[in-house]
Nucleic acid binder design. Structure first.
Length: 481
RNA sequence: CGGGACGUGGCGCAGCCUGGUAGCGCACCUGCUUUGGGAGCAGGGGGUCGCGAGUUCAAAUCUCGCCGUCCCGACCA
């Protein structure tokens, strides 16, 4: 590999590595507006795969899609105090349009609870109208102070679900169904990103939420990424926007709400979870090209090799594999190898006269670099098996890496905060539940509580790592994106 | 908003200190030869140096002001 074209080292300069991978793999680039990015076709193709996986699960759990507008009167947003407190600093306002100053400024949505709940009032009259299970695919704008491609952009794409229910229990169950059956399933089985499932501490909750459920993933630089969130909103929004219905007993009632979202941030998560010094490593289930066939062309056998490549591509397509034959004449094979590795294509097939003569194809997997020769007749089947194996291996490698970087011992407050402040990974430890301790860890290490895990493990008895009082729960700390 | 760096063809940079109207690598275009790990040779196109003002015979270069970008923190999916 030539030094002039090598990527920055992932371990030594992670932010530079990340930016270069996103740019050179042609996922996205920045635009004239600070923090707003252009998502390029290859990056958008990944988003479309992910979008479809999420959308299928959202529908499978009984939801319908609809669409609310980008703009809403600023006063509608302002009615909900929690949203104002939470989002005011990052809301963009339209104050002028059609050549004149507007009577009332319009807010560009930072999220849609306000507009949607101000509308739901007309849609919810009876308990028979419940539950309302709606989702929208949309763009939102949050004026972030420090944007980063995919991870925190001024405008981003996401889905936001907004549901209304008769009972609190039903709403909580909804929020958890989304967390597990939609988000965790997609993120783990499709994106191959292992996640911790948990609740947010009070201080980290969504504005207006009674409970925020979250998926937290560990990136290869030791920081945590919130992969998706699902909120139980109680009756707060219903009360603010005066959404009432006649209940089964004939009296007025306020519905219970949830909202939940996952965004283009996940694309950044895939880069930071699986990428290596050669570039992207895409899990096969979201790879726009799962297999790339690179024909090795020499004048004498050109036609035969191309024909064999086309035949193999047909066989792979018949097996529902997304395949591309890279027959560009302007580049030599070595260039293509590097380019497709940078772009993270899970499996590469090399096919030249040498292979044809031997009745084999050369197959290389991106995750391990392992190279093997496979009889042509078995190539399509073998590629399918290999893709499954790459998918599973990426997940296992990421899970092992997370475990390796998770500290569970009680070595002492100073050691733990030191571990956290250099973003070495996760700390899982008992917590007394008091925000004083949460704040102290943050000021000592700049790490925050990522979640209070809701997995199978019972909260271990013990003393709060910070103050030593009896713990009420286990908490997971880390530096966060 | 605080700290740091930087704005020069598409991208990455040099030139600035010691003013004399722009150069390198990659990319791009044409042709030929190549093709199993980022090809070679030959030819070619493209910028007036972030913006504004000033000094000067002359400004990418010196002075002043402004704007913008990136990185590190506080806010955040």
């Amino acid at each position: 590999m030539c030094a002039a074209t090598a990527l920055p080292s992932q371990s030594a300069e992670f932010p530079a590595w990340y930016g270069e991978v996103v740019r050179r793999a042609e996922l996205a680039e920045s635009s004239p507006v600070r923090g707003a990015m252009v998502i390029k076709p290859y990056g958008y193709a990944i988003w479309e795969m992910l979008q479809r996986e999420l959308d299928d699960r959202i529908k499978a759990t009984g939801h319908e899609n609809l669409y609310f507008p980008l703009l809403q009167p600023a006063s509608v947003l302002a009615r909900e105090g929690a949203l104002v407190d939470g989002f005011a600093p990052e809301v963009a306002l339209v104050t002028e349009a059609g050549g004149r100053k507007l009577e009332e400024p319009l807010a560009v949505r930072p999220t849609s609870e306000a507009l949607i709940w101000s509308t739901y009032g007309r849609w919810i009259q009876s308990y028979r109208d419940l539950p309302l299970l709606y989702n929208q695919w949309a763009n939102v704008v949050r004026w972030e102070l420090r944007p980063r491609l995919f991870l925190r952009t001024t405008e981003f794409l996401w889905q936001e679900g907004h549901t209304a229910h008769e009972t609190a229990a039903e709403a909580v169950a909804e929020a958890l169904t989304i967390l597990h059956d939609v988000y965790a399933d997609t993120v783990e089985s499709v994106l191959a990103m292992p996640v911790l499932r948990g609740r947010k501490s009070r201080g980290e909750r969504f504005p207006g939420a009674e409970d925020t459920y979250t998926l937290e993933a560990l990136m290869r630089d030791g920081k945590a990424l919130q992969a998706a969130t699902s909120h139980y909103l109680g009756q707060g929004f219903a009360r603010t926007y005066d959404v009432r219905y006649t209940g089964r007993d004939g009296t007025d009632a306020y519905p219970y709400a949830t909202s939940w979202g996952a965004s283009t941030r996940l694309v950044g998560g895939v880069v930071m979870t699986h990428g290596d010094d050669r570039g992207l490593r895409l899990p096969p289930r979201i790879a726009p090209h799962q297999v790339v066939i690179v024909p090795i062309l020499r004048e004498a056998d050109r036609a035969g090799v191309l024909q064999a490549a086309a035949a193999l591509a047909d066989a792979l397509r018949a097996a529902a594999v997304r395949v591309r034959v890279d027959d560009r004449p302007e580049h030599r094979p070595g260039f293509k190898f590097n380019e497709w590795e940078l772009k993270g294509v899970p499996v590469r097939v090399e096919l030249g006269a040498r292979d044809l003569a031997a009745g084999v194809v050369t197959v290389v997997r991106r995750d391990t670099g392992e190279k093997s020769e496979i009889p042509v007749a078995r190539a399509a089947a073998a590629a399918g098996e290999l893709l499954d194996d790459v998918q599973a291996s990426l997940f296992e490698a990421a899970r092992d890496e997370r475990e390796r970087r998770t500290v569970r011992d009680r070595s002492g407050y100073v050691e733990l905060t030191e571990y956290l402040s250099r973003a070495a990974g996760l700390v899982e430890a008992p917590w007394c539940g008091r925000s004083e301790c949460e704040a102290r860890v943050k000021s000592d290490s700049s790490a925050t509580i990522r979640c209070l895990p809701i997995d199978e493990r019972p909260a271990p008895p013990g003393a709060c790592i910070c103050c030593g009082r009896p713990a009420v729960t286990t908490a997971v700390w880390a530096q966060a994106y």
